[in-house]
Design a protein around this nucleic acid. Structure first.
Lengths: 308, 308
DNA sequence: GCCTGACATAGGATCGACCTATGCTTTCTG
DNA sequence: CAGAAAGCATAGGTCGATCCTATGTCAGGC
């Protein structure tokens, strides 16, 4: 019989490509992990890793097993969370992923909403970068999240669009925001982009790359900074221009770059804000609450999107 | 940590409404099930059953847990089934290395052969260049491959020759293919060689270098192109001559260089096509299948070599 | 009040998980 | 090319979890 333990060790070994590192990650000695993998292989009757000098390499069977193993662990995790959250809306912790612009202008209000209804709970908004959030979702450590996503859906995830947010060009130079910005003009601009936006697999990045690609040019020289706030400040100082969601403009421009203006791109482009969770997940009451509240908040600020 | 075992016992008890009957169903003694439930309750910190005289009755928490527990067991089951179906080649991915001329004239047919017998599988032919293939073999990321090899065997690899393919001289100039080409004539020729052939550690390269060496000259000026197809086309345009395996001639010459002719070298030289795998490897059914099919295909096209 | 069905507890046997120590092979390095 | 380093396998021992049988306890039925 497969055990959770074996699958945990298997996944760690798969991801680390090494039994030793897997053991470190799990806090065990190396032979223990080795033994778990061996019994797992034996009980399945297949070889999962090839031992070859440095480290281990997964076989194709291991590739096949991996998503199933992840799913088992995720469902175990869901089970635990479900039980805890039965009384947990009184006392537990609610975790919710929220990355990108969504976090920026709905985070605080969302926490307030939850606390108003359930004064006893602890709220945790996870979301330094979207790779983390997606990884936590995939691993089942996070039930659901609201993130800005590209149109394409990730494997095994259910993506429910709730709102869209226009991407606009901001600049301290009035001339450059006098008329909609085309791809050609964009390719010549000197932009500052928050690193999170560039690295993230979200609409902003994809849209901009596509626009640049159409001009037949390489990506322009650009400044990368850590967060949107800094980017907006730099724009306010006239050091560069940027492309940000409309919500950010309303939220930050008056405060951080009062002299800057904004204008649409041509054609208009949008970030899609969506709720994302594992396709096979049963959502806990807490997660459903967060989704409901977050959707409500976002749709107050951005243009709602009705799912088909 | 939740264990599968605990959940199994929980579900049996939930459905039977009795620990004794649950134990019977599972083939355990009653105290064993009792203990499992108790540890489960302890680790979750909640009461799952109320002990009321006759039998046990689930609490609301147990009602909540049940669908999650069922899901966990179902996903475990799916994981096992997935692996078993891979084992029987019903699904999963088969990876096989195939470099050089072998890939060129057996690749597509080989994939077709596999898919005909096992419609569910995904086939992956690895083989952009032979260095990659050998590296992947050595690292254990590939189980087996068919490549054109030099007579010398690589360390730690088992090499099983299956066919040989004559190396012939091709040219658009009828005079130059009127009689067998000797080393001396070869050294004066202006050749175009596909880069893959030159860089690979295969017979072609070794044979030609040896022939050139005998004339006491350095390698002749030559054109290097990316693939065999391009080389043959250049020959067809009369820009250079080349040395390619006989199989390539049959396959490509009529299509890409209809006016070119070919002639043997003197003495005749051959590429050896062989199955290569790690000497210590136990080959999976999938790999054995690929080897069998690939060998069959190749021997239809080239002259079979019987291993001693 | 006694019997019966059903869960809890106790104590011992067995199995599995984990550890440390060590050996072997591959890979890196001087 | 030899020695060091890294990484997996094996061996042997400890400990805890699991499972068993036997027995205790409690509620419901006659």
């Amino acid at each position: 019989m497969l055990s959770v333990h074996q699958l945990t060790c298997f996944l760690a070994a798969y991801e680390q490509g090494s039994l030793t590192r897997a053991a470190e990650e799990l806090g065990y000695a190396q032979p223990s992990v080795s033994e778990q993998i061996r019994t797992l292989e034996k009980s399945l009757g297949v070889q999962l890793f090839r031992r070859v000098g440095r480290g281990v390499t997964p076989t194709t069977v291991a590739d096949t097993l991996r998503p199933y193993a992840e799913r088992v662990l995720a469902s175990i995790d869901e089970a635990e969370r479900a039980v805890r959250s039965v009384r947990s809306l009184e006392t537990g912790t609610i975790r919710f992923g929220m990355f990108g612009t969504a976090r920026l202008y709905a985070g605080a209000d969302l926490v307030a909403d939850v606390l108003e209804r359930y004064p006893g709970v602890r709220v945790e908004l996870v979301g330094q970068n979207s790779t983390d959030v997606q990884e936590e979702l995939r691993r089942g450590r996070l039930e659901a999240a609201m993130i800005a996503v590209a149109a394409a859906s990730s494997e095994g995830m259910t993506i429910t669009p709730v709102a869209r947010d226009e991407l606009v060009y901001i600049s301290a130079d009035p001339e450059r925001v006098a008329s909609p910005v085309t791809a050609a003009r964009l390719s010549q601009a000197s932009l500052v982009m928050p690193e999170t936006t560039w690295r993230a697999n979200d609409s902003t990045r994809i849209v901009l790359r596509q626009m640049l690609h159409e001009t037949g040019r390489n990506p322009m020289t650009r400044i990368e900074v850590e967060d949107v706030e800094t980017a907006v400040e730099l724009v306010g100082m006239g050091l560069a221009d940027s492309v940000v969601p409309r919500g950010v403009v309303d939220q930050l421009l008056p405060r951080l770059a009062p002299d800057a203006g904004w204008v649409s791109l041509r054609p208009r482009q949008h970030d899609i804000l969506a709720i994302v969770h594992r396709a096979d997940a049963i959502l806990s009451p807490a997660a459903q609450l967060m989704i409901e509240l977050a959707t409500h908040r976002i749709q107050e600020i951005c243009e709602p999107v009705r799912p088909r």
